[in-house]
Nucleic acid binder design. Structure first.
Lengths: 134, 134
DNA sequence: TAAAAAGCCTATAGTAGCTATAGAGTCAAG
DNA sequence: CTTGACTCTATAGCTACTATAGGCTTTTTA
């Protein structure tokens, strides 16, 4: 399978695949005589794994760790659980932050309902004040 | 006021201030004989505005636009409202995405409660499957 | 008064995870 | 045999900073 086919099969950009190789997430594949990369089922599976993790917003470093566990099938998988728990916590925290932010933004938005001139715009005036919270 | 004082007054890193200058968000200040930057009240106010916007997670480009409106006090501020509305929408969407993600991650986490060996870990196995949704 | 410490300067590279570009080579179809 | 699609490497760009190196200025301390 050439890189374009692998790209289609995993819904990934060609450049991204080369980038993962460079990052050591995907092993270097064999090459044709014309120097084209040739991939097999193992690559397909590994890239599928990576993309699935990315769709869950995991960092490449987290994925690197998960791949290490996958490569050592006799290891205890408690670390996988830990990693996932930590990631869930990160996401939960981020949601909390964003909700807070949303509230602030909506409050700010209410300061100017009319279309007046900038000099009297409640939003611009408020933004000129020092940050209070957050 | 020297750069360090401005940094303290606005709770900003010195490097960040120089970066804003380079980006054209802060006007170039006067210099002392020894080539140190000297800031006045205007700089303080402008940086306060920028930092306030950043604390609301606005992009530098959005801030650039807001600054333009601020600099033209006779302009109609309808664009300010539009910009803010768009930003609120972005944040709201991001929250929605993250909630969905959180759900998926928690579902994934339930696939492995025990500490077994990696080869039988429900999480690693699931991650090896192609992405279905999202 | 001299030396040490703190602060400032510029220029450059690194962070994350790609995306885009340039310029060249390879391959299949018409 | 030429066109077009695909591939190759190397490099730069994106965001918003942060960090580093190496050198100057100013302030503090002995």
């Amino acid at each position: 399978m050439k890189i374009g086919e692998l790209a289609k099969a995993t819904d990934t950009q060609v450049e991204t695949i080369r980038f993962y190789e460079q990052e050591g997430l995907l092993p270097k594949p064999a090459r044709t005589e014309g120097n084209f990369r040739i991939y097999g089922q193992q690559h397909l599976q590994r890239l599928t794994f990576i993309r699935h993790c990315r769709s869950l917003d995991m960092a490449l470093n987290e994925i690197r760790q998960l791949l290490r566990f996958k490569d050592l099938p006799n290891e205890n998988c408690g670390s996988v659980n830990n990693l996932l728990d930590a990631h869930i916590q990160t996401v939960t925290n981020r949601i909390k932050d964003l909700r807070q932010l949303e509230k602030q933004l909506k409050g700010l938005r209410e300061l100017c309902q009319a279309n007046q001139d900038s000099a009297h715009c409640g939003i611009l005036n408020e933004l000129s004040q020092p940050v209070k919270s957050l």
